[in-house]
Amino acid sequence: MKFTTKGLSMGDAYEVVMEDVPHDCVLMVVSELHGLAGSVFPPEIDGIVVDLHAWSHSALRSEERQRNFCLIQRLGDFSLGGSARLKVLLLRVIGFNGAIDVEVSFDAEPSDVQMLMQEFQTLFFCLKRCSGAGAICGGMEPVADSATRIFMHG
Rank of each mutant, 00 (worst) to 15 (best):
L91K: 04
D112K: 09
Q114N: 11
V102W: 01
V104Y: 08
H53W: 07
R67F: 06
E109P: 10
L91D: 02
A54Q: 12
S58T: 11
E103W: 05
N68Y: 06
V113A: 11
R65V: 12
V104D: 06
S83L: 11
N97Y: 13
D112L: 10
G47C: 01
S79D: 14
G82C: 12
R74I: 03
L75H: 07
W55P: 03
R67N: 15
R74D: 02
S111W: 05
L89E: 05
A108M: 13
I100F: 09
R67S: 09
V50I: 10
D77A: 11
I72Y: 00
S62V: 12
A59K: 03
V93E: 00
L90W: 07
Q118V: 06
A54E: 10
R92W: 00
R65M: 09
F78Y: 14
H57N: 05
D112A: 13
M117Y: 02
V102I: 13
F69L: 04
D46I: 00
Q114E: 15
C70L: 15
E63I: 05
H57W: 14
L71F: 00
V49L: 02
G98Q: 06
S56P: 14
L89W: 01
F106A: 07
M115D: 09
N68I: 01
V88H: 13
N68E: 14
I94C: 15
A84F: 06
Q118A: 06
D46E: 05
F78H: 09
E63Q: 09
L60V: 09
E64S: 15
S62M: 12
R74K: 13
G98H: 12
L75M: 01
F69E: 01
N68T: 09
S105M: 12
I100K: 11
I94V: 06
L116W: 03
R67D: 12
I100D: 05
L60H: 04
D101P: 10
V104Q: 08
Q114G: 06
